[in-house]
């Protein structure tokens, strides 16, 4: 029997007995980043395909959520920093080998662009609210008037309307980078065997897009959009399940530390939370419900949508938490 012990009593805060320096902020941000990336992807994709008038909700209305989500996500990231007043150091260099640097700069481009995008549809957004959410409109109609009164916003809106096509193309590319980065951020750490797999990038990208499709399902009133996104979501769920199986196949065929990492989910402490909450409740049940709905059964679309969102959030919490436990030594 081999036993390794630190006998000098190392008790570094947030490091020992195992690392837990990333708490709720990082998984919440990874969830929000993936969700926002998906919303941006769908809206710019359908805009580029010329479906602006056919799918107005997806192209014009739902992207309003993106700036709100991203600002909240950025705030969560800021809360995570331990040396907060120096956060601006992120924007003094570009470090190509550092995923964190990529993420910071991607957000720096995506966030303002998403604001410009939503501003350019300001009129349509408030018309939509007036029609569907009269109370919300009553409470917020002054915002529209205020924005339109300020000259700087008027010129941004004018620019946004004129340059929608290039903006849509940039957002399409950036959304994929943003979505895949939420996984690469973790997979770049080879010291944490659970994270150190290239599947994590595509897995988080697909999962993020799936949560975005679920959000669209949750809010859209248009039956044809509902049908289309149920189908898209089903496809994304299928890819996600395939990637999860692939993830564990890869681990089990890899080195000792990665086999041990997989064991956390195959009999270890994360088995129930992962397979029951993420895979079963977060993927399989919503997939079954969506299939039934497409077959004509009356199922409130909110149920599968909310399950997918919860599953996506739990997936990120579990991966961040479990990854910090996995290590090379001791």
């Amino acid at each position: 029997m081999k036993e390794e012990l630190i006998i000098s009593g190392r008790e570094n805060f947030l490091i020992d007995p195992y690392i837990h320096i990333w708490e709720w902020q990082i998984p919440v941000y990874l969830f929000i980043g993936g969700l926002a990336a998906g919303l941006i992807f769908f809206s710019s994709l359908y805009f580029i395909q010329g479906k602006e008038e056919k799918m107005p909700f997806i192209v014009k209305i739902i992207p309003t959520l993106v700036p709100l989500l991203l600002v909240f996500g950025l705030f969560a990231l800021f809360l995570d920093l331990k040396h907060k007043l120096y956060f601006w150091q992120l924007y003094t260099t570009i470090k190509l080998e550092s995923p964190m640097s990529w993420g910071a700069w991607t957000l720096m481009i995506v966030t303002p662009l998403s604001i410009v995008w939503s501003l350019s549809y300001l009129k349509e957004i408030f018309e939509h609210w007036q029609k569907n959410y009269p109370l919300l409109y009553k409470l917020t109609s002054w915002i529209e008037k205020l924005i339109l009164r300020l000259g700087i916003f008027r010129s941004i809106i004018k620019l946004g309307i004129k340059q929608r096509k290039p903006i849509a193309w940039i957002m399409l590319v950036m959304s994929v980078i943003l979505g895949i980065y939420t996984g690469i951020l973790l997979s770049a750490f080879n010291a944490r065997p659970l994270w150190n797999t290239s599947i994590l990038g595509p897995l988080f990208l697909v999962s993020g897009f799936s949560t975005a499709a679920a959000t669209i399902l949750l809010f859209t009133k248009d039956k044809s959009e509902q049908k289309l996104f149920s189908k898209i979501d089903l496809l994304l769920i299928a890819i996600e399940i395939f990637l999860i199986i692939h993830l564990f196949m890869g681990f089990l065929a890899s080195t000792t530390v990665q086999i041990e990492a997989a064991q956390l989910f195959l009999g270890g402490p994360f088995t129930v939370s992962f397979w029951v909450f993420v895979v079963f409740i977060g993927l399989i049940i919503p997939a079954i419900l969506e299939v039934l709905e497409l077959k004509g059964f009356h199922i409130p679309v909110a149920i599968p949508a909310i399950l997918i969102l919860i599953g996506g959030l739990i997936l990120r919490f579990i991966i961040v938490e479990a990854g910090q436990i996995t290590r090379y030594l001791y």
């Binding site: 920093l81 331990k82 040396h83 907060k84 120096y86 992120l90 964190m100 750490f189 944490r192």
Partner: peptide, 10 residues
């Protein structure tokens, strides 16, 4: 240093 802990994880 901004205290992002990327190095700690790596």
């Amino acid at each position: 240093c901004i205290g992002c802990a990327a190095c700690i994880q790596s």
